[in-house]
Write a protein that binds this DNA or RNA. Structure first.
Lengths: 135, 135
DNA sequence: CTTTAAAATGTTATATTATTACATACTGTT
DNA sequence: AACAGTATGTAATAATATAACATTTTAAAG
């Protein structure tokens, strides 16, 4: 019959790359990740991209599309990357995941006029963070 | 004094590239654009990217971040690219600009908890379009 | 404990997307 | 005519991402 595979644990490369992203205070790009994990034996881009793809798929990380960079998911409530929202400071480049249940519900229920059925959305807000506003 | 420059007309390259994008039924990528405009004398990537940057800046086109592709703005009411929303079919790749005043207002007024001031947002919905749902 | 399908890995090469840097020309105001 | 801002042309290269193929690991099922 169809086999069941474990869903919780990460593979070696996935774990290495997730740990790095999770510890990072800022979004990491694929080649920055590659640079840092070379000492751990991950030597080539496909290894990085494969792990990233998988981590995105299972919702452990998100891709910030406007920056081609990746952050760990801090919410447990963005159900497997179906509903993501980020705030991005245009000056200091700080990125935060916006977790607002109302917003998330509002967008998840949104139906467009042309009859599309939405499975997923990604929202990116741009502006100035608290600190950068002052300066 | 500070000079005033014209704000309405596009330069030659900008016009060529805008026309191409505007006529296209689908988002166009930079190198696809480059291919099509070579017969008009635009030969190198920087020429394309510069025109694209400018057209985005003045709100004549938008970038679909998840696809690295560009579409013409069909709304006159997304005030200079400050508030953009798109629906993207995951099967046929069709992209439409979502113009929903309520949604736009809701998101423009959204304030996050960390005190950021938002100037702009981009929202991308993914799912299946009407036609692809049937198949 | 062996077989097996799925998942993950390793590796080389290459494709795609985007920018730097610098020289030149055009545009419209003063 | 002088100028400042904008746009253009061009070559080179940087940054991001995938294709293709061989091999190995994982863990469920027999």
């Amino acid at each position: 019959m169809t086999k069941m595979y474990k869903e919780n644990s990460l593979s070696k490369n996935q774990q290495i790359i997730f740990d790095l992203i999770d510890k990072s205070p800022e979004p990491l790009k694929a080649y920055t990740i590659l640079f840092y994990v070379q000492k751990k034996g991950i030597k080539a881009p496909p290894q990085v991209y494969r792990a990233l793809d998988k981590l995105v798929e299972i919702g452990k990380i998100h891709k910030i599309e406007s920056k081609n960079a990746f952050v760990a998911c801090k919410n447990s409530n963005c159900e497997i990357s179906k509903a993501t929202a980020f705030s991005i400071c245009e000056r200091c480049e700080e990125v935060d995941e916006v977790s607002d249940t109302k917003l998330s519900k509002y967008l998840s229920k949104f139906n467009d006029k042309k009859g599309m059925t939405f499975k997923r959305f990604n929202l990116e807000f741009f502006g100035l963070c608290k600190r950068c506003k002052i300066k």
